[in-house]
Write a protein that binds this DNA or RNA. Structure first.
Length: 569
RNA sequence: UGGGGUGUAGCCAAGCGGUAAGGCACUGGAUUUUGAUUCCAGCAUGCACAGGUUCGAAUCCUGUCACCCCAGCCA
C-alpha cells in the first residue's frame, strides 16, 4: 500500500541538509524552529512554513521548536500567543516541551550587546530616527558615519546601562552595531540593535525592560542558544543573512546555525499579509480572524478544511526560491480529495420546490435505507423517510430543455437519489407565473432497480417535506474578484472584494438524520458540495452549515460555455 | 555595473552533462442511481533570450533581457 504512495517530495533545503549529513556539518543533527511573531493569527502561508520546519525535523529524526519572536511589544499580545499554539497543534504538529520566547533570552541578549561594545563593535547613537535615515545614504550612495560612532567603550557601557535603567526617552538613543556605513548591503550600515520603549507592558516580561532588541540581533542569537542547525526563513531576509552571520561571528557563542531562505506562498484570490488581513477585519468586510472566508488557519478550520488537507497542500506546492502564485484550485483539490473519501453523504435541498407525488398515499410514508458512501459500505447506512410531499431543488426542474439537460422537465422522468423514479405530470404557478409546485407520479417498481424498456438519465436529490429539517446554509466564495488583488501598488486591494463572497440561504431543507449532526461534522451534500456544521459563530439559530467547497461541476462549465456562446452572437 | 535573488507548460514543480518526473488545471473517451468519484488517453522536438564549450547542454561558460527584494528605532 505504502509503495503506492507518490514519490516523496523533496526540495532544495532537503538537499542542503542531505549534504550536511554527508559532511557531518552539524554532527548529523537536524534542529529547526518555527518562529512566529505573536502579532496576528497564522495564515496558510505560515502553514507552509510550519509544515516545512516540522516536516523536516520529523523526517530527519530531529526536533522543531516553537519560538515566539516577541521583541516588539507594541504589536504583540497574549491572544495571538494562544491562537498560534492552537493552530500549530491543530495542524498536527508537536513541539514537545520546547516552547520558547525570544524574550526568554533578553538577559543573555543584553550580555552579548555588552560584549560587542567591549569589542568596539557596537555603540550608543544619539541620532534621531530621521537623522539616522539621512546618514544611512541611499541604495546607490554610501552612508556617513554617525558622529557618535567613536565613543569610548566606557562611555558606551554606561550609556547602555542608562538606557536599560530607563534614564532616556523613547527615540532619544539606540544601540548600533559598528560595521560599515559604505556597505552596498543596507543592512550592514550600522544596524540598530536596541531601541527604547517605555510604557508598554510586554506580555511575557511585563515592565521589566524598557529597551527591546531588534530582530536582526535577536534572531541569530535565539537560534544559536537553542542549538538550531537550519534556520529557515523567507526570501526577504536574504540580505539579512550576512548580518545574521556577523552577529554570531562576533560574540562568544559556539553554535552557528545556517540560514536558508525560501519563497513565501502567494495564493490567488486572497491576500496573505497581516496588515491586509487586519484591514479586512477592521473594515468589517469579514467577521474576524476566523471568518470562514479568511485564509487564516482558524478561518480554514471554521470553514471545514481538515488539517491533513492543508498538509497535503503544503506538500503539493513545494518549496523553492522562485516567486509563485498558487491557484485556489490546488487547495480545493486537496480538501475534495480528503472529503471524497471521508465525508458521509447526505441530501440537502438548498432552494426547495414542493413536489406532490399524486399516486402516493397521503397518510403513508416509508423509511428508505441509503448508504452513507457509494463506495465504502463500512461507513454504514441511514434511514431516509419518503412520503407524498417532497422537496427538490428549483435548479433541478425546467419546463422545457434540450436533450443535454438531464434533470426533471415537464412530462419527463428523473430518478430521486436512493429512491424512486418520478414523472412530472403538471406544473403549478402563482399569479406572477412563478413555479411553486410540481405534480408528479412515482413508479413503485423502480426502487433499487432501473425500469425496463426505458432509460432515465438524470438523478436528483430530494427530502421528504414532512420530515425534513430546516437549516441555514452559508455559501462561501472567493473573497476577491481578482487573482492578485494586491498585485498593483497604485490600486487598493479592497476595491476587489467580492460582494458575493457569502450568500446565506435561510430556508434550506435537509434530511432528518442531520438533526443529530454535531459541531464541526463534515458531510457531502450530494450534487452540491462539502459542508460542515458551523462551530463557533455566535449568531447561530438552529442548524447552520458552511459550504467548504463545491463539487467539481462539469455541467456548470457546459452551461457557461453555452451562454457565453449565445451572448457573443 | 549599488547589493541580493529568480526565470522549466495556464499554475506549481522535479531535474544537478546522457536526450524534459509528478501534481493542479484543461481536452477527449469509458464506467456511474451524485453532470461527483474512478478509469483510460492526450497535454514542453522544449527549459527567458543570444552565442560558445562538448560526441552530447535545461544542466558548464560568456553576454543580454525580464521580474522580485533592500534605504523601520517592524519582523
Amino acid at each position: 500500500m505504502d509503495e503506492q504512495k507518490k514519490t516523496v517530495t523533496t526540495n532544495f533545503i532537503r538537499h542542503i541538509i542531505d549534504d550536511d549529513q554527508q559532511t557531518g556539518k552539524f554532527g548529523n543533527k537536524v534542529h529547526t524552529r518555527f518562529p512566529p511573531e505573536p502579532n496576528g493569527y497564522l495564515h496558510i502561508g505560515h502553514a507552509k512554513s510550519i509544515c516545512l520546519n516540522f516536516g523536516i525535523a520529523r523526517d530527519y529524526k530531529g526536533l522543531c521548536n516553537l519560538r515566539f519572536d516577541d521583541t516588539n511589544p507594541h504589536k504583540e499580545n497574549i491572544e495571538f500567543v494562544q491562537s498560534i499554539q492552537d493552530d500549530v497543534r491543530w495542524l498536527g504538529f508537536d513541539w514537545g516541551d520546547r516552547l520558547f520566547f525570544s524574550s526568554d533570552y533578553f538577559e543573555q541578549l543584553y550580555g552579548f550587546a555588552v560584549e560587542l561594545i567591549n569589542k568596539k563593535l557596537a555603540y550608543v547613537c544619539d541620532l534621531s530616527a530621521e537623522e539616522t535615515r539621512e546618514y544611512r545614504g541611499t541604495l546607490k550612495e554610501a552612508g556617513r558615519e554617525s558622529p557618535y560612532r567613536n565613543r569610548t567603550v566606557e562611555e558606551n557601557l554606561s550609556l547602555l546601562a542608562a538606557m536599560k535603567a530607563g534614564e532616556f526617552e523613547d527615540g532619544s538613543r539606540v544601540l548600533r552595531a559598528k560595521i560599515d556605513m559604505s556597505s552596498p548591503n543596507m543592512n550592514m550600515r550600522d544596524p540598530t540593535l536596541y531601541r527604547i520603549r517605555h510604557g508598554v507592558i510586554h506580555h511575557q516580561t511585563g515592565e521589566e525592560w524598557c529597551i527591546y532588541p531588534m530582530y536582526d540581533f535577536t534572531h541569530p542569537i535565539s537560534d544559536a542558544l537553542e542549538g538550531i542547525t537550519h534556520s529557515l526563513c523567507t526570501l526577504e531576509f536574504e540580505d539579512h543573512r550576512s548580518l545574521y552571520d556577523w552577529v554570531l561571528d562576533n560574540i562568544s557563542i559556539d553554535c552557528h546555525p545556517q540560514q536558508i531562505e525560501f519563497s513565501r506562498l502567494n495564493l490567488q484570490y486572497t491576500v496573505l499579509s497581516k496588515r491586509k488581513l487586519i484591514q479586512l477585519i477592521d473594515e468589517k468586510i469579514v467577521d474576524g480572524w476566523d471568518d470562514p472566508r479568511m485564509p487564516t488557519i482558524a478561518g480554514l478550520r471554521r470553514r471545514g478544511y481538515t488539517p491533513s488537507s492543508i498538509r497535503e497542500f503544503a506538500d503539493r506546492i513545494g518549496v523553492t526560491k522562485s516567486e509563485n502564485s498558487i491557484e485556489m484550485g490546488v487547495l480545493e483539490s486537496c480538501i475534495r480529495e480528503d472529503l471524497e473519501a471521508n465525508a458521509p453523504r447526505r441530501l440537502a435541498v438548498l432552494n426547495p420546490l414542493k413536489v406532490i407525488i399524486e399516486n402516493y398515499a397521503d397518510d403513508q410514508h416509508e423509511d428508505l435505507n441509503a448508504p452513507n458512501h457509494p463506495k465504502d459500505e463500512e461507513m454504514g447506512r441511514r434511514q431516509m423517510p419518503f412520503s407524498r410531499e417532497i422537496y427538490i431543488d428549483h435548479a433541478d426542474f425546467r419546463e422545457s430543455a434540450n436533450r443535454k439537460y438531464k434533470r426533471l422537465v415537464t412530462e419527463g422522468e428523473v430518478r430521486l437519489r436512493n429512491a424512486y423514479v418520478i414523472k412530472c405530470e403538471s406544473v403549478i404557478k402563482d399569479d406572477k407565473g412563478e413555479i411553486i409546485e410540481l405534480r408528479c407520479r412515482y413508479d413503485k417498481e423502480t426502487l433499487g432497480t432501473n425500469p425496463v424498456g426505458r432509460k432515465v438519465r438524470g438523478v436528483i436529490h430530494w427530502v421528504s417535506a414532512g420530515h425534513a429539517v430546516k437549516a441555514e446554509v452559508r455559501l462561501y466564495d472567493r473573497l476577491f474578484t481578482q487573482p492578485t488583488p494586491d498585485g498593483s501598488k497604485n490600486e487598493n486591494f479592497l476595491d476587489y472584494v467580492n460582494p458575493g463572497s457569502l450568500e446565506t440561504v435561510k430556508d434550506a431543507m435537509v434530511e432528518p438524520s442531520l438533526k443529530d449532526a454535531k459541531k464541526g461534522d463534515r458531510f457531502q451534500f450530494e450534487r452540491e458540495g462539502y459542508f460542515n456544521v458551523e462551530s463557533t459563530a455566535s449568531d447561530i439559530d438552529g442548524l447552520v452549515f458552511n459550504r467548504i467547497v463545491t463539487l467539481r461541476d462539469s455541467w456548470a462549465k457546459i452551461e457557461q460555455r453555452a451562454s457565453s456562446n449565445t451572448s457573443n452572437k
